[in-house]
Design a protein around this nucleic acid. Structure first.
Length: 892
RNA sequence: GGUCGGUUAACUCAGUUGGUAGAGUGCCACCUUGACGUGGUGGAAGUCGCGAGUUCGAGUCUCUCACCGACCACCA
């Protein structure tokens, strides 16, 4: 049989194509199996996938494959997001490079460009997902702007509108002067900036030489001031309340009012009020019925309300006003100030609060059940702190501004007639619903991109239609997402699901960390420190990337993408590949034993099966609990340490035995059966994480007589075979485990001496073991052949207990035996005494530690009995070993 | 300003109900033994950020502080 020494990662694409062709990822709504559903967080069609997607989707695919193997009808629903503003910005930029603007090509032409963009990037993303091995049901793939989702969006909008939960109103919105659109609070990033605070004073109207001093960080907004406010409790200004201040630039008198919003301790205790350009001032304005003067155009320049400043930019106006105030003797001073400035997260432009007529979703009532779901414990987060983020957001919920002044997105289904009536309908109405006027225009704005993704868990399944898919697969089982979009997305899916499906869209939320670069920074385009998953796949394969991303990692903490971790991961898969190769090479005359059949198993067989049994239990538990890092690490450790380093080595003498003796043959077959069984189970456990290589290995192990058989139609893939489960096989075997642990201890002891004495592996030594009792005698006698191989011995003699030790030998005391290595020429009495003394000291220290513990009344009284028992057993063992060491010391 | 996270071997990180500190990489020494040198064997290496507390016992629980990081936030 000819199997290459290394796994060919280039087979991944071929294996994937095979799966896809066979329809293994298809989830059937008519199936009798229990459903298990995960919705992919639809990637934005803005660019290629990055490492964050790779992690996010790997977690999902592991869970999906695990559940599919467990016999669930598992649906991994794929799709993409149109990402309204993000994509539009990119396309605008791309057009600008050709000297084209949106208006040049018009709405229709522009949208055509966007659909072309979607074809290109949406397609790229899908191919990347496939390349990473994700087992999505591609037949069900959706896009947030496709027909079905668009219908769901309209349905939602109309229904919320009819309920009065969507309204249109003039409010202060976050306005991006560059993108010329409103954005939601969540899209505003606050960053502390070094800027200045300017101190001015306004004259008090009608009183010569009387002024009121205040400070502002935005002098240009003075043009829109409609009041001056002080604290009601501030005696300093009490006399001024009710009087008027005078704004010279605008020739405007504004009232001096008292409002509790003002903190008398801060600054001068005086705040200028600009209701049209500051959210707090807006509130104050509402309370005091102040006029709202909008001084800005959509592009951020001063409008006609700014009088002489009309047409100037924000920055120009600011300087000019400072100048003018100075000339008028009303400027006091400028101080440096570090304060938070809101910026648009997409373009970095300073956000301007602006009065606008926009569409809003009234959040108060929708938020209540969403909050209740969390506080009642129905909605769970994998870490409590993520739940707190969720709760905090809902506690401070504000109405959601959903209109965007963009073209790419779901156009708002509101139609206006010349008489000022609004008609909201899914299908463009022929006439105004109020006055019957047929001259209607549709609102030019589109909806916030999250409006559609909020519906993702059920709209993708066919809602508002009552489809079999919706019936079968909703609610989904778990949502896996990045920390960054808990409130953007998770919150909105929750209340949407509750509102329209009457049921939470999922009960478990897994929030994972961010993939950082090698020095702990976020990967970003601007830093140029991003790593393309496809580059890694090109070099190492998807299996390596997937395993590396989860192995040993705490799911909730950020992880650095450390390229040095790739090689060890690849090495592991190579190790697994070769372990399988070894097993296959030794199965040539194997004619099949099925699990549970009566096989002449030996102690090491029972040991490895016992370890495997525990591994399966633990890995299953870990996966159920979404602790992928633990699961992966345990499988890797088992395969490498227990299986390869110990079991395979121990079993070699049995495999290589040429004896035709019936016992020897039975023993060989038992070894073959165990090797195969254990490896098949291990490969299955690993399959959700590294699906490609395990598929190949499984198929080979299934049919060892002809492992190179091409994937036949009748052959099932790994994912459809069952998740390993040894319940009822009685493989749990503590006695075998204890025995093998002793063998391992003996082997390590001998190896340590060999290394110390620099005995090369090629030099075979003889070993004499004098066991402490009959149990140990049986154990070591049975393990003679394995011991010989593992310790590089030509002969292993197990003498009777208490028999005379050989002369001139180095002695090693282990649990249950003293081992003698007759290495006459190498024995140096002085050094031996030193070594044994060191050993003695170590044992004495161990004993002292245990004794102090056991003689501690508090410990004996309060520690769990099992722990005390363990300590006593250890004490016994150490005491016996110490006695042996002392005997040896006397002998030298 | 508020909330949260991190601080464990030279490096990157695990450490699931508190019970004698682990892995990988790197380093040192040895080895091509019939699966694998993308390998094997042995080894060195940590006062678990500082200080205190609870406990028979603390990397693990509580508090203080320090440094790093994330998020939230309307203080002019």
């Amino acid at each position: 049989m000819d199997i290459p020494k290394t796994y060919d990662k280039n087979r991944e694409a071929e294996i994937y194509a095979r799966w896809e062709k066979a329809g293994y990822f298809r989830a059937d709504a008519a199936s009798d199996k229990k459903p298990y559903t995960i919705m992919i967080p639809p990637p934005n069609i803005t660019a290629k996938l990055h490492m964050g997607h790779a992690l996010n989707n790997t977690i999902q695919d592991i869970l999906i494959r695990f559940k599919r193997m467990q016999g669930f009808e598992a649906l991994y629903m794929p799709g993409t997001d149109h990402a309204a503003i993000a994509t539009e910005t990119l396309v605008v930029k791309a057009l600008a490079e050709q000297g084209i603007t949106k208006n040049d090509i018009g709405r229709e032409g522009f949208l055509k460009k966007l659909w072309e963009w979607n074809e290109l990037y949406g397609g790229t993303i899908i191919n990347q997902l496939k390349r990473l091995g994700f087992s999505c049901d591609w037949g069900k793939q959706r896009f947030t702007m496709d027909e079905g989702l668009s219908d769901a969006v309209l349905e939602t909008f109309v229904s919320l509108y009819n309920e009065g939960k969507i309204y249109r109103g003039e409010r202060l919105v976050n306005w991006c002067v560059k993108c010329r659109t409103s954005i939601s609070d969540a899209e505003v990033e606050h960053e502390d900036k070094e800027s200045s605070i300017y101190h001015f004073k306004y004259p008090i109207d009608g009183e010569a030489d009387s002024f009121i001093a205040f400070a502002t960080t935005r002098p240009e907004t003075m043009l829109g001031d409609t009041a001056i406010a002080v604290s009601p409790d501030d005696s300093r200004y009490a006399a001024l309340v009710g009087k008027f201040a005078y704004i010279p630039m605008c020739d405007r008198k504004i009232p001096i009012i008292a409002d509790s919003y003002v903190d008398p301790e801060f600054g001068t205790g005086v705040v200028k009020i600009t209701p049209a350009h500051d959210p707090n001032d807006f509130e104050v304005g509402v309370r005091h019925n102040l006029p709202r003067i909008n001084i800005l155009n959509d592009d951020g320049t001063i409008n006609e309300n700014g009088g002489a400043y009309n047409g100037k930019t924000r920055e120009e106006a600011r300087l000019k006003i400072i100048e003018e105030m100075t000339e008028r003797g009303l400027y006091i001073k400028t101080e440096p100030l570090s304060h938070a400035v809101g910026e648009h997260d997409r373009c970095g432009t300073v956000v301007e609060p602006l009065m606008k007529l926009q569409w809003f979703v009234q959040m108060e009532e929708l938020a209540k059940p969403a909050l209740e779901a969390y506080t009642s414990g129905e909605l769970r987060f994998n870490r409590e702190r993520f739940g707190k983020i969720y709760k905090n957001w809902l506690d401070n919920i504000r109405d959601w501004c959903i209109s965007r002044q963009l073209w790419w997105g779901h156009r708002i289904p509101a139609y206006y007639c010349p008489n000022g009536h609004i008609t909201v309908a899914k299908i463009a109405p022929a006439a105004c619903g109020t006055c019957g006027d047929t001259n209607l225009t549709q609102d030019p704005d589109v909806l916030d991109t999250w409006f559609s993704s909020a519906l993702w868990p059920f709209a993708t399944l066919g809602w508002p239609q009552k489809t079999p898919e919706l019936e079968k697969f909703y609610p989904t089982d778990v949502l896996v997402t990045d920390r960054g979009i808990i409130f953007h997305w998770v919150v909105r899916m929750v209340f949407s699901g509750q509102k329209f499906m009457g049921e939470l869209p999922f009960k478990d939320v897994i929030v994972h960390g961010t993939v950082l670069d090698e020095i702990g920074r976020k990967m970003s385009k601007s830093l140029g420190n991003g790593i393309d998953p496809l580059d890694i796949i090109e070099q190492f394969g998807a299996d390596v990337l997937r395993l590396m991303l989860v192995n040993g990692n705490a799911i909730d903490s950020d992880t650095r993408f450390f390229s040095e971790r790739l090689e060890p991961t690849r090495n592991f898969l190579n190790k697994l590949w070769n372990a399988t190769r070894f097993v296959l090479m030794n199965l040539e005359d194997y004619h099949g034993y099925e699990s549970g059949e009566n096989v002449a198993r030996e102690t090491e067989d029972r040991w490895i099966l016992s370890c495997l049994n525990r591994l399966i239990t633990e890995v299953t538990e870990n996966l159920e609990a979404h602790e992928l890092g633990h699961a992966a690490k345990k499988i890797v450790d088992f395969i490498w340490d227990e299986f390869c380093d110990w079991y395979v080595e121990m079993v070699k003498p049995r495999l290589y035995s040429k004896s035709n003796d019936a016992t020897a043959k039975a023993s060989r077959k038992a070894a073959q059966a165990t090797l195969r069984e254990v490896l098949i189970a291990a490969v299955k456990l690993l399959h959700p994480i590294t699906p490609f290589i395990t598929e190949d290995l499984f198929l080979a192990l299934r049919n060892p007589a002809n492992p190179s058989t091409e994937y036949g139609r009748e052959m099932q893939s790994v994912m459809l075979s069952h998740w390993p489960d040894f319940t009822g096989c009685n493989f749990d075997n503590p006695a075998a485990e204890k025995s093998i642990e002793r063998v391992k201890e003996a082997v390590r002891g001998i190896r340590a001496v060999r290394t110390e004495k620099q005995v090369p592996p090629s030099q075979k030594i003889s070993v004499v073991i004098i066991p402490a009792d009959t149990d140990a005698n049986d154990l070591f006698a049975n393990a003679k052949a394995a011991l010989a191989l593992l310790a590089g011995a030509a002969t292993v003699d197990v003498n009777a207990a208490n028999s005379e030790p050989p002369a001139g030998a180095i002695s090693v005391v282990v649990s249950g035996a003293t081992i003698y290595l007759p290495l006459d020429s190498l024995v140096d009495t002085e050094k031996e005494r030193a070594r044994l003394s060191k050993e003695k000291k170590k044992l004495e220290q161990e004993l002292a530690r245990i004794d102090s513990k056991l003689s501690n009344e508090g410990f004996v009284a309060k520690a769990p009995p099992s722990l005390i028992e363990t300590e006593r057993e250890k004490r016994e063992n150490f005491a016996a070993m110490l006695a042996k060491v002392e005997t040896e010391l006397k002998g030298t």
